[in-house]
């Protein structure tokens, strides 16, 4: 039990990751799959941010020229999350524009109907 309370943010991050994964797998609507991908990425960012945090310390902006490292939090995870968020935004924009094109062509967002309509197209 102490393990769970000691690792609380990391466990929540893993639960978020699993919620995103289940949304990706179990829903048929394309927009919901994209939302699932986003939730998965959010879980990962929460995980790495909670890894870098040290209790009772400040953010890594040097105050009054005092560069003692025991006053500040680890700055590396912040940089990793920054890159991750930018990648997540780019990926979301491309997948949303793909779903827009698919909707204009097939008038549905359900992946199975899209496969069927595309297979019909090939037979004709």
């Amino acid at each position: 039990m102490e393990k769970i309370s000691g690792h609380f943010p990391q466990i929540i991050a893993m639960i978020l990751f699993t919620i995103g994964l289940s949304t990706l797998l179990l829903h048929r609507n394309l927009i919901k799959k994209i939302i699932g991908l986003n939730i998965m990425d959010t879980g990962l960012f929460l995980f790495i941010t909670s890894v870098g945090y040290i209790s009772d310390r400040l953010a890594p902006i040097i105050i009054n020229g005092n560069t003692d490292p025991s006053l500040y939090v680890n700055p590396v995870p912040a940089g990793l999350v920054l890159t991750g968020i930018v990648v997540s935004v780019s990926v979301t924009s491309i997948t949303l524009s793909l779903s827009y094109r698919l909707y204009k062509r097939f008038h549905t967002l359900n992946l199975d109907e899209i496969y069927l309509l595309a297979a019909d197209e090939e037979e004709r």
């Binding site: 991750g84 793909l98 779903s99 062509r105």
Partner: peptide, 24 residues
């Protein structure tokens, strides 16, 4: 054409799942 858009969607979603696992 319609087929490449569908193929691109499937390719992208699977590949992004793989990238997510790699990042983890």
């Amino acid at each position: 054409i319609g087929k490449t858009t569908i193929a691109a969607t499937r390719y992208l979603i699977l590949n992004l799942f793989g990238s997510g696992l790699f990042l983890f």
